[in-house]
């Protein structure tokens, strides 16, 4: 089980002939991801690691029935790639690309809503259901199959925490990066709803950071829907950026405290009020999960 993807998900890689696209296609194939085609305009008819390359997404969809796309296209062209995928009837778009202008992201997400498409990212490491399938650039060896779902706004911090969980014997159901941009597709609340429906997932780790109010919204959702003893999920959170100053972007376009909005303190308080344990440091997460399960 796990959410969104599995071994049978037919995947197109947009930007497959690029350095990153080709490198990660190799790693995803090795992991067992069913990549059916690649797309690079102008390179149709070639192959990358034995995967046929097409000029357009619609050709790949018609021929193989692909339902998911991974996008490695550079920022100035990435929004065109995403719109093309959605118009070609792709239902899950993983937008790895960083530095897409917000104006384009807004347009992508509005179209996604109309087409009923799930967008992961932009600026995401992707999604992995350990020992089953990955649509992402994460190092697979830190993940192990299990019952803990992870939703995160950060890439490397997810690897850090997944490695801690794996070491402590907590495998993962599905781990996904929501993306480090101010405006992204899937939210914490969206993923919580999916994890609730997933039979494999019994606990969720939410990894937040400064900026925006996605964590506060998650806390509100949890206090209304997942606080009771009968809730199907145990939830633990971590929030990065306690030491971050106001008004400075901390690496991610979305990681910025503006005025009083988006502080780590506000997020931690919101989680605690909703009954969610918040870890002081990443290595505390397994302990908190153990208390909860």
């Amino acid at each position: 089980m796990g959410i969104i993807i599995n071994r049978d998900t037919k995947v197109v890689v947009q930007g497959i002939t690029g350095l990153q696209g080709s490198f990660h296609t190799r790693l995803m194939l090795d992991y067992g991801t069913l990549i059916v085609a690649g797309v690079t305009p102008g390179k149709g008819g070639t192959e990358v690691h034995g995967i046929p390359v097409y000029d357009s997404v619609s050709e790949a969809v018609e021929r193989y029935g692909a339902t998911a796309s991974m996008i490695f296209v550079p920022a100035p062209f990435a929004s065109e790639a995403a719109l093309e995928a959605m118009e070609a009837n792709i239902k899950t778009v993983v937008l790895i690309t960083e530095h897409i202008p917000v104006r384009n992201t807004i347009q992508i997400l509005a179209y996604a809503k109309r087409q009923g498409v799930r967008v992961i990212g932009p600026n995401t490491p992707g999604i992995i259901t350990p020992e089953d399938c990955k649509l992402g650039i994460m190092p697979a060896h830190v993940f192990a199959r299990g019952e803990v779902g992870i939703a995160s706004r950060s890439g490397t911090l997810t690897y850090e925490i997944a490695a801690e969980l794996t070491k402590a014997g907590f495998g993962q159901s599905t781990c996904l990066g929501l993306g480090g941009d101010p405006i992204v597709g899937l939210s914490f609340v969206d993923t919580l709803k999916m994890f609730e429906q997933d039979k494999q997932t019994r606990a969720v780790v939410l990894i937040g950071e400064i900026g925006g109010n996605a964590e506060e919204q998650a806390a509100e959702y949890i206090s209304f829907n997942l606080k009771s003893k009968s809730s199907p999920l145990r939830i633990v959170a971590f929030v990065a950026g306690r030491a971050a100053p106001i008004g400075k972007r901390m690496g991610h376009a979305g990681a910025i405290v503006m005025g009083k909005t988006g502080t780590a303190k506000s997020k931690i308080e919101a989680f605690r009020k909703a009954g969610v344990k918040v870890a002081e440091k990443p290595s505390d997460i397994p302990k908190l999960l153990a208390e909860k399960i």
Binding site: S152, G241, R242, A243
Partner: peptide
């Protein structure tokens, strides 16, 4: 110094901790 915004933020936090 580190790689990844979240990881570096968490490193700052750990130092402060």
């Amino acid at each position: 110094m580190g790689n990844g915004a979240g990881l570096v933020m968490a490193t700052l936090d750990a130092v402060q901790y």
